[in-house]
């Protein structure tokens, strides 16, 4: 289709190179269209099949549903998806708030104050980025069990905070370096405390990076798996990633409802992404270049 349109516009004639360019363009369009379909279609497939009965699914999984079974969604919702979503929201909000507060404090001190072993401290904060959570998993489990934090929100919040602090501190620090130091000095001369300078000057100026860093951390926590798998076991604290898994196991026989559950679990994040694509991609790719 695109092929003939382009050819009509620029008949293959005099310049050999132009023809080659047109073919290149057609190939590139085809490649990107195919890739886009491969990336997006599974989601559409999921949502369409969430309306089907298991029989219908087996006979033709790419057709539109014969009847739109909305009851699949209500049944799935009744299996506890709402509770899992709520737990995810609680854990994510608590983690991100704590991470942003603590790491912006650390970043502030690292940028504006001078104190002994500053470079070493910064390195040891960054070093946390290298360590995969797997390495600390069993010892963490033991500590949480010994302190009765196992199977509470804190069992997810505290480790998540710790593992997100390094990168967030790194991002915020890189941003704060660009804030002119005279602002702080003038305020200190006026008699402001460091706390006030941090809260009333640095934090408002850092809003863009706080938004990006917060989004990156929020996505990480929302999708976090291994802590949620290991540190909680009751439905009342399970986050949506693990909830969906027990849900999928429980509904092995009823694929339509299972897919409705999966669809519901990703709906909030999918909707946010579709509405705020640019901000989302911009925020999540922050830190690609320093």
């Amino acid at each position: 289709m695109a092929d003939s349109a382009l050819n009509a516009e620029r008949p293959i004639s005099t310049v050999h190179r132009q023809a080659g360019e047109v073919i290149n363009r057609v190939i590139l369009w085809a490649v990107f269209l195919t890739l886009s379909v491969i990336c997006v279609y599974p989601m559409i497939w999921l949502f369409l099949n969430a309306f089907k009965s298991t029989n219908e699914l087996f006979s033709a999984s790419w057709a539109l549903p014969e009847t739109w079974r909305w009851e699949n969604f209500t049944t799935a919702w009744g299996y506890g998806i709402s509770r899992y979503l709520l737990n995810s929201v609680i854990v994510t909000v608590a983690t991100v708030t704590t991470v942003l507060t603590l790491s912006s404090m650390a970043a502030y001190a690292l940028v504006v104050m001078s104190f002994p072993a500053k470079a070493a401290i910064y390195m040891s904060i960054l070093g946390g980025m290298i360590l995969p959570p797997e390495v600390s998993l069993f010892p963490l489990f033991k500590v949480l069990a010994a302190t009765d934090l196992y199977n509470t929100y804190f069992a997810l919040i505290l480790p998540n905070v710790a593992f997100h602090l390094p990168f967030t501190t790194f991002l915020i620090r890189s941003y704060m370096v660009g804030i002119p130091p005279d602002l702080r000095e003038a305020a200190l001369v006026e008699g402001a405390s460091e706390g006030l300078v941090w809260r009333d000057i640095y934090m408002p100026l850092c809003r863009p990076i706080l938004a990006s860093a917060g989004l990156i951390a929020a996505m990480g926590v929302w999708n976090e798996f291994i802590f949620a798998l290991t540190f909680v076991e009751s439905d009342s604290v399970k986050t949506v990633t693990i909830g969906v898994m027990s849900f999928a196991v429980a509904l092995r026989a009823d694929y339509g409802i299972m897919m409705a559950g999966l669809a519901l679990s990703i709906l909030p994040i999918l909707a946010t992404f579709l509405i705020l694509q640019r901000q989302f991609i911009g925020g999540l790719t922050q830190g690609a270049v320093k």
Partner: peptide, 19 residues
């Protein structure tokens, strides 16, 4: 300065490096 970085360091020591 130490006080400002202490919470972050504490988290890392207790939940990352210590374990």
């Amino acid at each position: 300065g130490w006080l400002w970085v202490a919470p972050t360091l504490a988290f890392l020591v207790i939940f990352v490096y210590g374990p």
